[in-house]
Nucleic acid binder design. Sequence first.
DNA 1: GCTATTTATATAACATGATATATAACATGT
DNA 2: ACATGTTATATATCATGTTATATAAATAGC
Lengths: 174, 174
Amino acid sequence: MIYNMLNKNSSEDTLRSLGLMTLGSRLKRLGERLQAEVQPILSELAPPVAAGQHPLLAALSKHGALTVGELAALLGVAQPGITRAVGQLAGIGLVAVTTAAEDGRRRLVSLSPDGVAFVAAAREGVWLRVEKAVADLCAGFGDELLAHIGSIEDGLARKPLTARAVEERQDDLA
Amino acid sequence: MIYNMLNKNSSEDTLRSLGLMTLGSRLKRLGERLQAEVQPILSELAPPVAAGQHPLLAALSKHGALTVGELAALLGVAQPGITRAVGQLAGIGLVAVTTAAEDGRRRLVSLSPDGVAFVAAAREGVWLRVEKAVADLCAGFGDELLAHIGSIEDGLARKPLTARAVEERQDDLA
DNA sequence: GCTATTTATATAACATGATATATAACATGT
DNA sequence: ACATGTTATATATCATGTTATATAAATAGC
């Protein structure tokens, strides 16, 4: 019976065996795994910043001051998450927040001087190392993978999944 | 200026432009997006079950009764998450939990009669429709994408990311 | 100018990942 | 038989996604 126990599931992966039916769960799991593995590398640059917040800093560096809503749109996440992340980054002094002059509702988020230095150092150091490590992991098919991901994202924007499944049902009725 | 605002970021995606450096964040985002889009389809089968919990039911259906630890290993997630999910599924009557006879620490989780019927119906209905919708979304490259994902998962198991980045640093020192 | 509607964002609440730890059961060694 | 170490799992805590909503500012329409 101990033999059965070990054989039963010692190296099986249910998500893998379920294929495209659980693609979302599998991508999420792998994404979280990668973020967790990348975190120690990123944290070598002080102050430690969550892996998921580095793109926010990169967006500010690239575009200059942005509103909460703009950041949410650029990063493809919900607004309250950005509010929270910005609050945390402001707390450690990497970003500064002001109220937009032309619209009192808008909050303008920008890199602080410390934030500017942080991003510059990250570009030359940890970001580069992370990219290389991930490229090594992808063993040459990185570009192809990114293209597939892009294609799925574009496909979802064009036509949501529920619309694809609805058509399937109509086919069944015919 | 309104023109500038719109042009600034109307369709740009920071994660996409950052490429492999933010692969984890991007995979996580897409995975959560897919789970969210799949949820309404799955919820057509009563009772509603979270997208992330369907694989747990599939694992029980395939392997029979499993312990909490075995489920965590099969699904590649942490044990407390399984404890919670099992509690929820037991709450809606799809799984049953007993104590293993040969080891009083182990909890044996199995599909209830309602759970067996649920899985059977899902197999013929919503799981099939989800798989087809996702395959449609992948536009023919589904198998290739799954292979890439598998390769990354295997690559992480063989050699963690931090080990890959460490070697990079040693190269820099030389 | 006033009213109704829309918009930007903070806040609340919740779901779902994780790590850490307490507790009990089991295994090992003397 | 007893002490020590290991293991399975519930529980606590936290981080990070989300949706919903309240509040204030801005916009649209008359």
